[in-house]
């Protein structure tokens, strides 16, 4: 079962690489913001998979909860900033 989760984790990392392409290439800043939000949710799952693989889910659940929270607040603040500056 561990190997299955390891494969899933590596697959997630590959998907993060794909998303990073959008973050780097993204024609406008807003595409980069969408890419960052996508990367955030994927790393949340990677974090939890690491917790499950190392059999310390109790600790990693708290960390991933905080990560999801900070990712959400980051997206909101970024969106508010981009809206105010108006240059896209």
């Amino acid at each position: 079962m561990n190997t299955f989760f390891l494969i899933m984790g590596i697959g997630m990392c590959l998907l993060v690489m794909l998303c990073l392409f959008r973050v780097i290439y993204g024609p406008t800043i807003l595409n980069r913001a969408a890419g960052i939000s996508a990367v955030g949710t994927k790393t949340l799952i990677i974090l939890l998979i690491i917790g499950v693989v190392h059999r310390r889910v109790e600790m990693f659940v708290d960390i991933s909860m905080v990560y999801a929270l900070l990712n959400f607040i980051g997206c909101l603040v970024l969106a508010k900033y981009l809206e105010r500056t108006g240059e896209v």
């Binding site: 807003l30 913001a33 969408a34 939000s37 997206c75 909101l76 969106a79 981009l82 809206e83 896209v88």
Partner: peptide
Amino acid sequence: TATHAISRAAFRC
């Protein structure tokens, strides 16, 4: 909500 915030920023720009 995050998706909405980003799309709203785009719409406002």
